[in-house]
Simulated scan of single mutants.
Amino acid sequence: MYSFKNDYSEGAHPQILNTLVDTNLVQEEGYGEDRYSLEAAELLKKKMACSDVAVHFLTGGTQTNMIAIAAFLRPHEAAIAAHTGHINVHETGAIEATGHKVLAVSSGKDGKLTVAGIQAMLDAHPDEHMVKPKLVYISDTTENGAVYTKSELEALSSFCKSHQLYLYLDGARLGSALSSPVNDLELSDLPKLVDAFYIGGTKNGALLGEALVICNDALKEDFRYLMKQKGAMLAKGRLTGIQFLVLFRDDLYSDLAAHANAMAFKLSKAIQDAGYAFLTPPVSNQIFPILPHDVIEQLRRQFYFYDWEQIDADHSAVRLVTSWATKEEAVDAFIETLKAKAVN
């Protein structure tokens, strides 16, 4: 059985593991003050062409979202997110547990937020008898595999700035987004357009780790205090720093994301050639084909994947996710099984 359930089923890229072994007995400062973490932070600033951002390494996406959003908001302020947004659906109320409400906006099948949706939420919260919307949360790629274009992000950025809202981007799958053929954003665009974002390592070759980038000066103060208070400051901070140093030193991060996308696109083409449609256009390493239930059951005998949404009595959309480590022979086996069922 081969898994297409997610992009974190494997451990870490061998270059990362080898570097962790090679540096294992080198004595370093703790709590992210080691030479590797400091060098990785400077490398990321160079990649972003922006020297005045603050870079903090954390261990996971939910932890990063929880601490960042709690740090950025005052007690009466709330976050706006698409109804499919990770902080609204898959983080066990982590944001709410810090005392901040998540205001969910209905979004289309692609899971993108729009200016109109944000404006509607602002209109619905006009005074001090309600929470005050202050932060807009988006994901790139979205939870439904879509990618924000530069014009879309510019529109959100302009709106947020004119309405004194923070724009925060969850980049758990940012590598896949930036490597997508429909993407026209550069990493260097993000510090100009958002107040904070994170670069996801867990889902793109790292053993664990996310790099939070705080762009807005007003949000930088005392962030390390909050990391420590929330249990997010690793004594062995080198473990995350080393991984991002390896991922970005020779563009390994982009190469791994490109492989994940390529495997997804190979699956997509074969599924399209077999006559099946998709819930959303396949543009990243998450794809959502709509398949007959008998085909799904046949595929499930050999592969793991998630059911996503029932379309009608005979069809459902499933989620297939490829990773930096997805084997092409596994993709070929999936395609052959699909073709065999189509013929029968």
Rank of each mutant, 00 (worst) to 15 (best):
L178P: 06
L153R: 01
K150Q: 14
H100E: 07
I138H: 01
G117T: 06
S188H: 08
N65W: 04
E309P: 00
K47H: 15
A70M: 00
E221A: 14
K236A: 15
L153V: 06
G61R: 06
D170F: 05
G145H: 07
L25M: 12
E329R: 12
A120L: 11
D123W: 09
T98P: 00
F159T: 03
I118R: 07
H13R: 00
Q15V: 00
Y137K: 03
Q27R: 12
K109T: 05
Y148W: 04
E152W: 07
L245Q: 14
S254Q: 15
A120V: 08
T62S: 02
L185P: 09
A116H: 11
Y36A: 01
L252S: 01
K269I: 06
D273Q: 15
D34N: 03
D140A: 00
Q15I: 00
V136L: 01
I311G: 03
T84E: 08
L38G: 05
A81Q: 04
L20P: 04
L338E: 07
I199H: 01
R301Y: 05
P281G: 07
A313D: 13
V89D: 02
T141V: 15
L178C: 08
A12H: 05
P75Y: 12
T64D: 03
Y168H: 02
N144F: 08
D273F: 04
I296E: 11
Y166F: 15
S106K: 13
P181R: 09
R74Q: 15
L234S: 04
L165G: 04
L178W: 09
L256Q: 05
E186L: 13
G111Q: 02
R173A: 08
K109N: 12
S3Y: 11
L113D: 07
H293I: 10
A124Y: 10
F57R: 03
I138L: 11
L256R: 06
I214A: 02
V213S: 07
E33D: 06
T84Y: 14
Y198A: 00
T149S: 15
H315L: 07
N183T: 03
E29V: 02
C50H: 14
S9H: 13
Q298P: 00
R300S: 13
Y31Q: 05
K203P: 00
V246I: 11
S179W: 04
N88Q: 13
Q119T: 09
A71I: 00
S139P: 01
L73K: 08
N344K: 15
L44N: 09
E210F: 07
A49M: 06
L193C: 12
K101S: 12
K5F: 14
I214S: 07
K5T: 10
N65Q: 06
A146H: 05
A257Y: 13
Y2M: 03
E91Y: 02
L25C: 03
H100M: 04
K339D: 11
L320N: 06
T149D: 01
A104K: 13
Y306K: 12
G241W: 07
T142Q: 01
Q229E: 13
K45S: 10
D250H: 10
V343R: 13
G275M: 02
